[in-house]
Simulated assay, not measured.
Amino acid sequence: MTKTAKANEITRNWVVLDAKDKTFGRLITEVAVLLRGKHKPCYTPNVDCGDFVVIVNATQVKFSGMKLEDKEYFTHSGYFGSTKSKTLKEMLEKSPEKLYHLAVRGMLPKTKLGRVMIKKLKVYRGAEHPHTAQVSKSK
């Protein structure tokens, strides 16, 4: 008989990922799997089974090809002519937290469940983070 996980039965761990010299896309897919809980045997699609993820050294990640100069992110406020664009390099220097959240959010469900999952992602520019008491394992 298939056992489905209940929200109160789930144990959540804290995972620290060091982004230094890792490829951005591969790191983001690993984060998405951890946030969804697909690495656990008790995975249930309609329950938040995932762990908390802390990413350190966010600005020292690697990109392949010419993505730093060529890839652009667009924002639009809804008003005419208000489209703005930033290159990947500008996003990485100014707000790497936003860059990571945008990339991971695209791999999570577009529902209330996905919005709960993305809140368990913590991104920090440097090696220090305030979650040392909760951290149980590093990768």
Rank of each mutant, 00 (worst) to 15 (best):
T83S: 15
C49T: 10
V56H: 00
F63G: 03
I28H: 00
R105A: 09
G114Q: 01
E9I: 05
K119M: 11
Y79I: 02
V61G: 06
S95H: 05
Y43Q: 03
Y43L: 03
E30Y: 08
S138Y: 12
K119F: 08
F74C: 15
V135C: 05
T11H: 14
K62C: 07
M107H: 13
D21Y: 11
H101N: 14
Y79C: 01
R36T: 15
R12I: 01
S77D: 00
L27D: 01
R12S: 02
K62Q: 10
P109H: 03
G106I: 03
K3I: 05
V123G: 15
D48T: 00
K110V: 13
G65R: 10
A103D: 15
P45F: 07
L88D: 02
A5E: 04
L102D: 10
A19W: 03
L99S: 06
P130R: 02
H39I: 04
V53A: 03
L108K: 02
H39C: 03
H129N: 13
T132A: 07
A5I: 14
G114I: 00
L121E: 03
S82K: 00
K6H: 15
T2E: 08
T59E: 09
N13M: 09
M107D: 14
H76Y: 07
H131E: 07
S77C: 00
F63D: 05
F74P: 06
K137W: 13
W14M: 04
K120H: 11
G50N: 04
P45H: 08
T2M: 09
E128G: 15
S85Q: 14
V116N: 11
D48I: 00
K110H: 06
G25D: 05
V104Y: 01
E93M: 10
M107N: 10
V16T: 12
P109Y: 04
R105I: 10
T83V: 14
D48F: 01
T132W: 13
A58G: 07
K71A: 14
M1V: 14
D70A: 15
V16M: 07
T2L: 06
W14Y: 14
T59P: 06
V47K: 06
I55D: 01
S136P: 14
L121I: 03
A133M: 11
R125T: 12
K3L: 05
K137T: 13
R26L: 11
